[in-house]
Amino acid sequence: MGLVKTGAIILRTYKLAEADKIAACLTEKSGMIRGVARGARRLLSKFGAGLEPFTVVNLTYFEKEGRELVTIKESEILRSYFHVALEPETIETLEYLAQLMEEFAPPRQVDERLFRMMRACVEAAAQSPTQVEAVARYFELWILKLSGFLPDILNCVDCRKRLGDNPASAFLNFERGLRCADCSGEGELYISTGTQTQFASMHTFGPSEWAQRYMMLSRKSQEMLSDVTRRWVRNALEKEPRRGRLSPGPSSL
């Protein structure tokens, strides 16, 4: 408790009273927090642009025991992405990622992997606006994995055979997970070798490299991967997440 200084990413803000803001922040030292920034809406606020969504900052806040909201004292900009405001599709997708982070990340639970992943995905989306759809798929896979909801995408859930070693690749049962051709049952969704390889490569590549490989997949494979990841997200949340233009919902799954 007391004064805390930490790296943070501003996920979103909303109005409070006439001159204040509440900011939802993903921090390195404290996980997900929400804090009040007094006077942040005033023209000459000391916070300036330091509370703009997706800005990476050094955050200083005061925490009082028993209070859900902290009091934000300073927000020093380390990396800003003001230019993405000119890219509606990019900002819409980043808002979707922020929504997922707020849904999946437990309040006040520290996980530096979540922070690094969020920062890397924001950077990748901002640097390559044409690949924001692919970055969103990468983010969905990793938020599911780090939250414990991602099925095993490397091995058959039944016999534990390495998937992708067989040309028939894998089959998906949404209740059980991925299965090899020998263990698959009737009516399960066929996952092509290219799609399975793309799934597995999340463990090898960062968001930019993974997105580049995603964009080289056929449109059919992209749609399949998108449908599957969104179905996993929906099942984990037990509701349909907000859809952006670059985050299509499940089609026939």
Results as ranks from 00 to 15, higher is better:
residue 126 A to E: 07
residue 37 A to Q: 03
residue 43 L to Y: 11
residue 112 E to Y: 06
residue 55 T to N: 07
residue 99 Q to C: 10
residue 111 D to M: 01
residue 120 A to E: 07
residue 38 R to H: 11
residue 66 G to V: 05
residue 58 N to Q: 15
residue 110 V to C: 00
residue 123 E to V: 06
residue 49 A to V: 11
residue 113 R to T: 12
residue 66 G to C: 08
residue 91 I to L: 04
residue 36 V to L: 09
residue 128 S to D: 15
residue 111 D to Q: 00
residue 57 V to I: 02
residue 97 L to F: 01
residue 79 R to K: 15
residue 107 P to T: 09
residue 86 L to V: 13
residue 125 A to K: 04
residue 77 I to C: 04
residue 67 R to D: 05
residue 127 Q to H: 15
residue 94 L to V: 03
residue 35 G to E: 00
residue 91 I to S: 03
residue 42 R to T: 09
residue 39 G to W: 08
residue 115 F to T: 02
residue 66 G to K: 11
residue 70 V to T: 13
residue 111 D to L: 01
residue 34 R to N: 08
residue 70 V to Y: 09
residue 90 T to Q: 10
residue 101 M to T: 03
residue 50 G to T: 11
residue 52 E to F: 00
residue 29 K to L: 04
residue 29 K to A: 06
residue 50 G to P: 09
residue 116 R to L: 05
residue 45 S to G: 04
residue 118 M to E: 04
residue 62 F to K: 14
residue 110 V to T: 12
residue 64 K to V: 14
residue 121 C to S: 02
residue 51 L to M: 07
residue 42 R to A: 07
residue 129 P to I: 08
residue 125 A to Q: 12
residue 107 P to G: 09
residue 118 M to A: 03
residue 128 S to E: 12
residue 29 K to M: 03
residue 122 V to S: 09
residue 89 E to K: 13
residue 73 K to T: 15
residue 104 F to G: 01
residue 53 P to G: 07
residue 59 L to T: 14
residue 33 I to R: 09
residue 106 P to G: 07
residue 35 G to A: 08
residue 62 F to G: 10
residue 121 C to Y: 01
residue 103 E to K: 08
residue 28 E to F: 05
residue 64 K to R: 13
residue 81 Y to D: 02
residue 60 T to F: 11
residue 97 L to K: 01
residue 126 A to I: 00
residue 124 A to W: 05
residue 70 V to G: 01
residue 69 L to M: 02
residue 67 R to V: 12
residue 72 I to R: 02
residue 45 S to P: 06
residue 81 Y to C: 00
residue 51 L to T: 08
residue 66 G to P: 08
residue 103 E to A: 00
residue 88 P to L: 00
residue 68 E to N: 10
residue 96 Y to G: 07
residue 67 R to F: 12
residue 29 K to C: 09
residue 106 P to F: 04
residue 44 L to H: 15
residue 84 V to E: 08
residue 76 E to N: 12
residue 93 T to S: 01
residue 76 E to D: 13
residue 68 E to K: 13
residue 33 I to D: 02
residue 122 V to A: 06
residue 86 L to H: 14
residue 129 P to V: 11
residue 35 G to N: 03
residue 83 H to I: 15
residue 69 L to D: 02
residue 71 T to L: 06
residue 110 V to K: 05
residue 46 K to L: 10
residue 29 K to V: 08
residue 30 S to Y: 14
residue 66 G to S: 11
residue 130 T to A: 12
